[in-house]
Design a protein around this nucleic acid. Structure first.
Length: 795
RNA sequence: GCCGGAGUGGCGGAAUUGGUAGACGCGCACGACUCAAAAUCGUGUGCCGAAAGGCAUUGAGGGUUCGAUUCCCUCCUCCGGCACCA
């Protein structure tokens, strides 16, 4: 081979030409047919881009390029989620300030990203650690504060002893820190929260309208965790207070035999009888020592102690004992439950262990064996007797409401978002405290409220910003003697909750977002990123967008109209990570094969949404494909030839298959279709038009090669600005069809018939087939004809 | 435990309003080119057979059907999520 295709020089050439022509800089104002294609922006880590990033970004770019060829004004920005722990931990280890290491990493990653040949509009990039960005993170905090959606309170919070900071509920996985894997403990701290719970119902309802993977929507729905039930008030013997419980099964009220409070319930002290106090205090101490993981371990025996006091069942007026037990959670519902051992598994276990009575009130199970928690028919329940569970629920709730002993309520498992962090490398919370300790917002004119630099980053559990002299001096200078700044910074998920709006920065720089551009470009047309954000970023961003729409800042409630998750690329079956030392860098592959080959190889591995284990065997196949394409169409372009009769039909079939595949994110089958076309056309005459059509089909998948081919064939402009080919149905039909003949469902031959042949003719022809005849050993019982596909003869 | 998703050649995978299972690619074998190797090209690649053709087959077992990778039931394995939410 004398004139092989050299990706290195060709790719560099086209990247330069695209840049010079500003081919990917979208004029947001003038655009007529917007398509906002977004990928989740990366964290600029020292590991640089790994194959996982490529697996996310490259196919996404192919999809966006296809949208562009379909005629959309496609906007695909890229930025950096630059605040966060890794840069800070790196600084602790090496002394290099986070601002410096991030700057260096961003520069490296931009170089890498440019080599991918994606259509990123670098004029509109963001970096969340840039003061001009985080002024808006802080502005958002002030908006939340002004609208009463941000508040500070003392609460038991998740604390990571290794990261030395609090974590949001979403950032705790299986009792461990989502980031470092350390076991999380509970700590009582005064922290800032955002009221996501106020949006629980809307966050749930909004899911219906989204074109997201069903799985992701289900995960969010489960996370929000809506349940319907009743809040029931229990009077107490010898106390004026009452205890409210939450239950989803108010219909079992007649079966309540005791009550359980969470050990942290505020009434525990009051309700503890003197002779029980020792045991109760000991139990509380024991519970407090447990980690979240130990406490929620389902296999452990259900522990608890009685308080010695009693409540009154509002339906029966029976006296029931009150216990505390750590299987009741303080944070959910009212922190107290009415126990119905016959119809709740947990209450059943607890009652068995502590020898508490049981009363069956729903027919349908055998409560001597196990709790019957399903629906059934009420019994031993006075006016509920004979009613099915749903009706019994309605009736008892109506009764409770009439008697003013309870009411129907809806509960959510979603909690408010804990946004403060005791770490350095984040956006400072724009709050100052007056000498009496009351919080005040930092006025907007002082934004960005700069992150101080005179700070060591040793994690001590106290916010590093407390060390900054400058920070306090600045605060006192502006607000007065005795005023102090808020020392906590914000969760980085705050930074990433609105970045998709900041990309639309072509408008008024004094505004958070230009309303005209927001209206025109939002919501994001297609958002692509990992499924690990299902209950973190993707909930936070939806919450923020909804809040902003309520504030009148944006015109849409939902940020991401369509969402697709790429699959995970593992190595040796494990997630790639620096600590495991199994991170694969794309750089050497790009050096050797070029970006087009590497992109196509990643896409050819399998369905985009599946991911898979990394292996480079097979990259050779794509290499060969690229060389063969170049050899056939690029090296010596055809002039004046006509298409072989079969070529046109194959071409149109290919257009159909590639179009459908790309639309469905099935890039693997799109590439397979192009390979099949090549196999079919090699050695046959083809026209220049056919070669050009093929090049356009290739353009989203191998952008550099396609440009080179396009120009080798005398094409003008960029191939990426050519229209996407359309197939013509007439070419997909042929005069004859091959029909499969089965006998008793087994393949015995095939016949070629005119495509308009009537059924009777086809069946007659089928019976004449020599091989078929051999198997027609008896009378034909049934003849089945599937038009144009097969004949099945049953004997 | 509960909720999702998935099990197809030596490997990645293709094909589902039920209709030729294994497209495309890797790998492997043989051949051509070469002094040789690499690269490239050609042929083959579930099993039996020279071929015609036959047989088997989509995690296991059962069912529905003329026909099942596709639908139903039972089970096994793997992956993801949630996990005492009353």
């Amino acid at each position: 081979m004398t004139n092989t295709y050299d990706p290195t020089s060709v790719e560099a050439k086209w990247q330069k030409k695209w840049e010079e022509a500003k081919a990917f800089n979208t004029d947001l104002k003038k655009a007529k047919d917007p398509f906002y294609g977004l990928v989740m922006f990366p964290y600029p880590s020292g590991d640089k881009l790994h194959v996982g990033h490529w697996y996310n970004f490259a196919p996404a770019d192919s999809y966006f390029r296809w949208q562009r060829m379909k005629g959309h004004d496609t906007f695909t920005p890229m930025g950096f989620d630059a605040f966060g722990l890794p840069a800070e931990n790196y600084a602790i280890k090496t002394g290099v300030p986070p601002a410096e290491s991030i700057k260096k990493n961003v520069a490296t990653m931009i170089t890498q990203l440019k080599r991918m040949g994606c259509m990123y509009d670098w004029e509109k990039t963001v970096n969340t650690s840039d003061p001009e960005y985080y002024r808006w993170t802080q502005w958002l905090f002030l908006q939340m504060f002004d609208h009463d959606l941000a508040y500070k309170k003392e609460a038991s919070v998740n604390w990571c002893p290794n990261c030395q900071t609090v974590l949001a509920n979403e950032q705790v996985a299986d009792g461990h820190c989502e980031r470092c894997g350390t076991e999380v403990i509970q700590k009582k701290l005064n922290q800032w929260f955002w009221k996501t719970t106020q949006y629980a119902q809307r966050l749930l309802d909004g899911l219906d309208k989204l074109e997201w993977p069903e799985k992701t929507k289900l995960m969010q729905a489960n996370w929000i965790g809506r349940s319907e039930g009743a809040e029931i008030t229990f009077a107490l013997t010898g106390h004026d207070e009452t205890v409210k419980v939450y239950t989803t099964r108010p219909d079992t009220l007649f079966g309540v035999t005791y009550m359980v409070l969470a050990p942290e319930h505020p009434l525990v002290d009051v309700l503890t009888e003197e002779h029980h106090r020792g045991a109760v205090e000991a139990y509380k101490k024991e519970v407090a020592k447990k980690t979240e993981l130990q406490r929620t371990d389902l296999n452990k025996e259900k522990s608890g102690v009685p308080l010695g006091s009693f409540a009154v069942n509002p339906a029966t007026n029976e006296r029931i004992p009150i216990w505390i037990a750590d299987y009741v959670l303080a944070q959910y519902g009212t922190g107290a439950v009415m126990a119905v051992p016959a119809h709740d598994e947990r209450d059943y276990d607890f009652a068995k262990k502590h020898d508490l009575p049981m009363k069956e009130v729903v027919k349908g199970g055998d409560v001597s064996q196990a709790a019957f928690a399903e629906e059934g028919v009420a019994m031993q329940s006075q006016f509920l007797d004979g009613l099915r569970t749903p009706e019994a629920k309605k009736k008892i709730i109506a009764w409770l409401e009439d008697e003013e002993k309870g009411r129907g309520v809806v509960q959510f498992r979603l909690k408010d978002w804990l946004v403060s962090r005791q770490r350095y490398w984040g956006a400072p919370i724009p709050i100052v405290y007056d000498p009496e300790g009351r919080p005040h917002p930092v006025p907007e004119k002082h934004l960005p409220w700069l992150l101080p630099t005179d700070v060591e980053f040793k994690p001590t559990g106290k916010s590093p910003l407390t060390e900054s002299k400058e920070f306090v001096e600045r605060t006192e200078k502006i607000f007065g003697k005795g005023w102090t700044p808020e020392y906590d910074t914000m969760d980085t998920f705050v930074c990433s909750s609105f970045y998709y709006l900041r990309y639309l920065m072509q408008g008024d720089p004094k505004k958070f977002v230009d309303p005209t551009l927001e209206k025109k470009w939002m919501p994001v047309s297609m958002y692509i990123g990992g499924p690990e954000h299902a209950t973190m970023h993707l909930i936070y961003a939806r919450f923020v967008m909804m809040a902003l729409s309520d504030f009148g800042i944006v015109s849409h409630e939902e940020p991401f109209e369509r969402l697709v998750h790429q699959g995970l690329i593992t190595n040796g079956g494990a997630k790639m990570s620096k600590s495991k030392g199994n991170v694969v860098s794309p750089d050497s592959f790009v050096d050797r094969h070029g970006a087009d080959v590497f992109r196509m190889y990643l896409m050819f591995m399998g369905p985009f949404t599946d991911g898979g284990d990394w292996s480079d065997t097979g990259i050779k196949g794509i290499d060969r494909f690229v060389q063969r394409v170049w050899g056939l169409f690029g090296e010596k372009p055809v002039k004046g030839a006509d298409d072989d009769a079969t070529v046109v039909a194959v071409l149109h079939k290919t257009i159909k298959r590639v179009t459908e595949s790309v639309a469905a994110f099935r890039f693997n089958t799109a590439i397979a279709a192009l390979m099949e076309f090549l196999n079919a056309v090699e050695g046959k005459a083809h026209s220049l038009t056919t070669a050009r059509t093929f090049t356009r089909l290739l353009a989203p998948l191998a952008p550099h090669l396609a440009e080179e081919l396009w120009h080798a064939m005398g094409g003008k402009d960029f191939v990426i600005d050519q229209p996407w080919p359309e197939y013509e149905a007439k070419y997909l039909l042929s005069d004859t069809l091959t029909v499969v003949v089965q006998v008793n469902g087994k393949l015995r031959g095939n016949i070629v018939v005119p495509s308009d042949a009537p059924e009777a003719d086809v069946i007659a022809r089928a019976k004449e087939d020599e091989n078929v005849k051999k198997f027609l050993t008896g009378p034909i019982k049934k003849e089945i004809y599937v038009k144009g596909r097969l004949v099945n003869l049953v004997v």
